[in-house]
Design a protein around this nucleic acid. Structure first.
Lengths: 291, 291
DNA sequence: TTTGTTGTTTCACTATTTGAAACTTAATCT
DNA sequence: AGATTAAGTTTCAAATAGTGAAACAACAAA
């Protein structure tokens, strides 16, 4: 495949010069990004997306890079322990070095440590499942979770990703992005119809965003998973920038939208507290919607 | 020059450590890097090692790379969301994209998911703190933990690193490496004396390794932290390869080495069970000692 | 204002990366 | 067994992407 057209050394959508001048700020390309490092990270993402060990040939099929290049990138990543290779099958999976790096990331760049006491409280008071999320490349990244009852089930949940356009936290966060950011994010949504209730058009979303901005919170009306509903609020910095999202989730078997809505004041109040703490802790904040 | 060509596609057995750090901090983390990707990852590691947001100037002081190069690397990483930059202070910290990647890594390349039920059992039976670790670049990387009583405290613990030469799990794992692997690992240890009991010479360690191999388990006799002791065992694959380590930890206030030793059979049995499960789940295993 | 510190860009030079193709296993078929 | 196909690895000339001294901008302090 990939004949002459794409295999250019540096996949640049805009045939500018080799030297990217300051010019157009961050025209962040989602993928195929900057230099060799960007390519390597793409490969990492690709491998991670399989959620199981993958062999070289399979990767080659899904990757735009020519065989030799892909091979070298993988070699490098493996040497760096960013990938682990099964000695028997030769299959690759994300490496443990990532776990170490993520520890630092979670502690420093996520809202989780700051929000912890607050979501503990919220969980106790609402008696429901709580999700704390942030935006990452247009997707919802869950950074913490409280199960109503059971002991925490952390790492297996933190790091999970979900769609931005059909989850409560997703919509709550998107609704408060700037128009530019939103445009960028929407362009990256798949608009897959998960359930009959899923909103699959920009227009439908846009309308809903207005309601969300008006009320301050969003609902997930079984849009991602049948029987699962939630109420969610954005966590906004002083400057009005979206730094995260918070939600209370339940199943239609045990609760109703009306009941969840009764938690709205508590939810908003918690989101507010988290925002304040984040501010005073000089939280890095950098929560741009693009990648 | 700083970046001398390694170019060999296949890493030379012992890559000379070219990036010599001046006024090296405590992190024994500097490993050579292949190509630009390696350098970028070095920078990531460096930033992560600060455990707080760092500004450019500070990084420049600790990094072997010239200003412009460092700058570009950081730019790229930030672009890729591997780093987050505080919009106000301009300080950098590890980015959330890492959290997402780590989720995949933790699930696929760590022993944690497989070992979970077993360490739950062990924790219940021993009523002590349990650590599950793996080797990462000569250091001990904790991938899971059970606190005797309190609910799990996951992400805040998983991803943590510790020295290999003066922790129970560390010694248990090192003792069962091949001589070549061990040599490589020992070369990367700092041999910092944490407490009066810390073993600070290769010889002392070597002797201890023999005992560990004989008994099958290792002790930490306050070598890393005063008052903290533990008993640890390696988790070995069928082929005898070290795939992880497991430990039972206590404080001298509440327990003794003798009491911990009484758990030895249980500990070894658990390690064995985990190994079996790992094997049958075709665990990637790739647990080479070098980076 | 000047000075100093920190962060950003330039630009000539070149070393690293590139990728088609050749090659070496490892598996599968006849 | 030998022949055939697929998977993975290495080569090598070409050129892109990376380098880093130094100039530059932005901003704070003197």
């Amino acid at each position: 495949m990939v004949s002459k057209a794409i295999h250019g050394k540096f996949v640049n959508p805009f045939p500018e010069d080799k030297h990217r001048k300051q010019g157009d700020a961050r025209m962040t390309e989602s993928k195929g990004g900057d230099g060799t490092v960007g390519k390597a990270l793409d490969v990492l993402d690709l491998i991670a997306s399989f959620n199981r060990p993958v062999r070289f040939a399979e990767l080659q099929g899904k990757s735009p890079f020519p065989k030799a290049t892909l091979y070298r990138l993988i070699q490098t990543l493996t040497h760096q322990n960013m990938l682990a290779q099964d000695p028997d099958t030769g299959a690759y999976s994300p490496g443990i070095r990532l776990v170490r790096l993520a520890h630092a990331a979670w502690q420093q760049s996520s809202l989780a440590p700051i929000a912890r006491p607050h979501i503990d409280d919220l969980s106790r008071q609402a008696g429901q499942t709580i999700h704390l999320a942030q935006l990452d490349g247009g997707q919802v990244l869950y950074v913490d979770k409280r199960n109503a009852r059971e002991p925490v089930d952390m790492f297996s949940q933190a790091g999970k990703v979900g769609p931005g356009y059909c989850t409560g936290v997703g919509k709550a966060m998107l609704a408060f992005l700037t128009e530019t950011e939103l445009e960028a994010v929407l362009a990256r949504q798949s608009f897959h119809r998960f359930t009959p209730s899923t909103l699959t058009t920009k227009d439908a979303l846009w309308t809903e965003f207005e309601e969300i901005r008006a009320s301050g919170y969003a609902f997930d009306r079984e849009e991602h998973e049948a029987g699962i509903i939630c109420i969610a609020a954005p966590i906004l910095s002083n400057g009005g920038r979206v730094i995260g999202g918070l939600s209370i989730t339940g199943t239609l078997l045990k609760t109703t939208l009306a009941e969840l809505e009764s938690f709205a004041p508590l939810l908003l109040q918690t989101a507010q507290k988290i925002a304040e703490d984040a501010e005073s802790w000089r939280f890095p904040g950098q929560q741009t919607a693009n990648r």
